[in-house]
Write a protein that binds this DNA or RNA. Structure first.
Lengths: 203, 203
DNA sequence: GTCTATATAATGATAGAC
DNA sequence: GTCTATCATTATATAGAC
């Protein structure tokens, strides 16, 4: 990362994003963030106030960044690979923040759900049967499931035999996800009969 | 929960499971756990030593509990509903521990992956095409995805409009998962062509 | 804008009485 | 087995000099 070229304020933000994403909000300390940014803890406070304020600033920054990336993808769908690569670290930050219970990232999840919803709409169109569960509910679950992968990256990487954020691991994950998403994981009849047991709780 | 009937040692364990699962390891404090258990912080130390030791004891307890439940399901597949209901809180604890990076829960994830693997094997048998990605890799991702749901329960519940651990929410999630798992989410041809872009990184 | 030094609060760990 | 009281550490928050 072009790290030394940034202003102190920006370096602090970058360092905070890194620490919050990797260590989580609680384990990340002001001191460690300041050290990574190459500044004193005092300067961090001068620019951002409290630790909670710093997190909010990071949340807002990522929020706008993702919106910018999204808008870019909509106007120029060609630059997908490069742009998505840029957005990936932010994705990890968002995942961690969502799991950490950050007060301000909720809306990001809701937007991701809306994106999943649009995506599910296409899948629903090619279905022969009618989905029994509201699309937004299914979209919420698909979204949470997707976010679970970076959240458990340590364990996923162990199963892969290679770091899932590395070149090889990244490719493996992408291919596997395409395979998973494009195939049913359980038989439709089995699912239907299993669902029958849930349909009417009081019988 | 039959909470007051337990020995102090057991009450402490139950309280710790609750706090670790809900607040995460870092936010959970010895004092708060002791208070929930109705004992002094000193007694907690007397029984479990350090906070890290307490976590390890919880991990081991849950580990054996899940094995017991699993064995029960294998011998008597009829008691599924009741037994699974009992195991659910432990599932939340495991999910949180995995995300928190507990040193001793790794093997649990690996076992869950193995279960997913057996499950995927059946799905693979009914496929017309040959999966391009190793089954264990896919199983690891499916497992991480499944665990992502309880990890983001706050946000999922918000999307559902009701607590996903409540009666109605639980039913909704179960039905939605059955629907999701039994249908492809993206078109197979689209997936195949997308995968083509990943197959050979250096072309 | 940037630093050093310090105050204050919370937490895990410990010692010792009953 | 159980408690109270205390220590030591760590982290955030703050004040003030340059």
């Amino acid at each position: 990362m072009a790290f030394e070229d940034l202003t102190a304020r920006a370096r602090i933000r970058e360092a905070a994003l890194e620490h919050f994403a990797r260590d989580g909000y609680d384990r990340a300390t002001i001191r460690a963030i300041a050290k990574t940014a190459g500044v004193s803890p005092g300067l961090l406070r001068h620019h951002y106030g409290s630790k909670e304020d710093l997190r909010e600033a990071c949340d807002h920054y990522v929020f706008e960044m993702l919106h910018r990336v999204n808008a870019e993808l909509l106007t120029d769908p060609g630059a997908t690979a490069q742009t998505q690569q840029t957005a990936k670290p932010f994705g990890c930050y968002v995942a961690r923040s969502l799991a950490d219970g950050s007060p301000t990232v909720g809306p990001i999840f809701d937007e991701l759900v809306t994106m999943s919803e649009a995506w599910l709409a296409r899948a629903d169109d090619s279905r022969t049967d009618t989905p029994t569960v509201d699309r937004r509910v299914r979209a919420a679950l698909v979204t949470a499931m997707k976010i679970g992968i970076p959240l458990l990256h340590d364990h996923v990487s162990r199963a892969l035999g290679t770091d899932m954020f590395g070149l090889e691991g990244d490719r493996l994950v992408a291919l596997a996800l395409l395979d998973i998403y494009s195939h049913a994981l359980i038989d439709e009849d089995v699912a239907t009969s299993a669902a029958a047991g849930y349909e009417e709780p009081h019988r």
